[in-house]
Amino acid sequence: MKKVKLGLAVALALAGTACSNLERSRDLANPNVPPAVTAMQVCSICHGVTGNPVSPIFPRLAGQQRDYLVAQLEQFRSHHRADPAGFEYMFGLSRNLTDAQIQGLADYFTKQVPLPGAPGDPALMAAGKEIFEKGVPEKATPPCVACHGPKGEGVATFPRLAYQYADYLSKQMHVFRETEGRPNTPMTQVAHGLSSTQVEAVAAYLQAFPTQK
């Protein structure tokens, strides 16, 4: 037991020195860690170094609207965005970030170049394109382009949708439609006007977002 205590004492002494290595730190509570370092050391593990993640569990951040990224990180930090992916992964990571760090992270990812996702079933994508451009008039659902822009590029706090993973988009639409996880957004109203098949269609279209007109 004496040896265990000794080991513990050594460990605690080491901890006490609190060596920090700002250029390659993974500390999420140190306001001095530059945002680009956090983006590389931590965010990149799921979202990719260039904001283009390998796994569709994680949203593509590359080229995302800066204001949208800032707003989301702030809402994770304040727990106002509480969809499952939000609280499971992002509450903790964002809890100690400073405003400056949040803005720096947003700057980092907004500058990256988004890569297109894989195309899905052509018929499904065609149906999605229709909704994206024209909405669902019989349900008074407005077209996506109205807020997210003709290229799905987003503006300010309206996010970029083009090339976003279909799985992520579809899950978020269900969050808007069926939960209170992301309150205070027009999407709650919009999502109610879409069936699950329509959600799938528009998500498939946005993931590939073919540019031919």
Partner: peptide, 17 residues
């Protein structure tokens, strides 16, 4: 998970003490 593996390989150092 792939993220968990990176957490371990980077020495359990991600986050806040």
């Amino acid at each position: 998970t792939p993220y968990g593996r990176m957490f371990k390989l980077t020495g359990y150092t991600i986050g806040t003490r």
